[in-house]
Design a protein around this nucleic acid. Structure first.
Lengths: 159, 159
DNA sequence: GCTCCAGTTGAGACAGTATCTCAATTTAGA
DNA sequence: TCTAAATTGAGATACTGTCTCAACTGGAGC
């Protein structure tokens, strides 16, 4: 996992961004947390490790990493934003379980193509987009079904 | 425009939601603002009209209207959320101009269908989704082009 | 290794959206 | 009219995220 660190460090160097101890910690933390994480997760990781990095610095550094293309920011509206390492992965969207918070990535090139098409028709130059599907994941659905079996009174209560 | 008010009032009655003076003002305000509006827009509309409704009540009532299906909330992340009347309109998504703030609606049933398909494949039960495309609208693009013509030094500066 | 300085950091103030608290008020049904 | 329960308003509060500014530091040049 930390084998990606040198590449990230190099990216910062190439952009003339100073490699402070804090930024090294943040890069390491990003790789350790992996997947999708928010600022709080990173901060508690640092507390756990006894690493001193201020909240402001974490916010600033994550923004920097987004700018240089090492991270992608996932804006969830009223919830804290999530970040995910990019590392040359294909552009993908997210399904977010409203029960357990599980985040499932999916790739659907045809959706991307249709968006481009829609923009072209409107003369709109797309720069970025967000597509999030909120719902109930498979695991939570199964759990629900099991609970309804053992508690029939609730079975018909769904909207 | 206000011909829709009785139907909205009826919806609230049907749900057993009390019709206070404040809620009537908010329904009227929603119809007057129309299109896409945020809480501040509604509040300044009320100030203008000399109508007294507190901020808390506006937030609470808009949430209520979303719950009963009269409004849709558009979550823009770091910007204030927008609301739009639903009134039986087709489900649509938004292109948002990062220059002028213009919001362009679009309907693309094939994107909706593909989302359903993706969810089905993952056993994910979709409840809601957000698709926003951020970019530069046609008008702003034209303005840019005009400015670049009169200021060639900037023409090659785009990244 | 030393110097220098622009970039960076930390602590806490601040901005902004949105919700909560709780006493006072109001609605709507009896 | 009466009453219970829902609703409201003012301001406190929660929470995410940015800004301020003095102190500090990475790294280029010597």
């Amino acid at each position: 996992m930390s084998s990606r660190l040198p590449a990230m460090v190099q990216t910062l160097r190439d952009r003339g961004i100073r490699l402070t101890a804090e930024r090294r910690s943040i890069l390491a933390g990003v790789l350790t947390c992996g997947g999708h994480f928010d600022v709080d997760r990173l901060l508690s990781h640092f507390r756990h490790q006894g690493v001193q990095v201020s909240r402001a610095t974490v916010y600033r550094s994550l923004n920097t990493l987004v700018e240089v293309g090492l991270l992608r920011k996932i804006d969830l509206g009223d919830r804290p934003s999530l970040y995910e390492p990019i590392e040359g992965r294909e552009h993908h969207e997210h399904m977010i379980c409203v029960r357990c918070g599980e985040i499932i990535e999916f790739v659907e090139p045809e959706i991307e193509r249709l968006q481009q098409e829609v923009c072209r028709r409107s003369g709109f130059e797309p720069l970025d987009h967000t597509l999030q599907i909120y719902g109930v994941c498979h695991a939570c659905n199964c759990k629900d079904a099991a609970e309804e079996c053992s508690d029939p009174a609730r079975a018909g209560a769904g909207g």
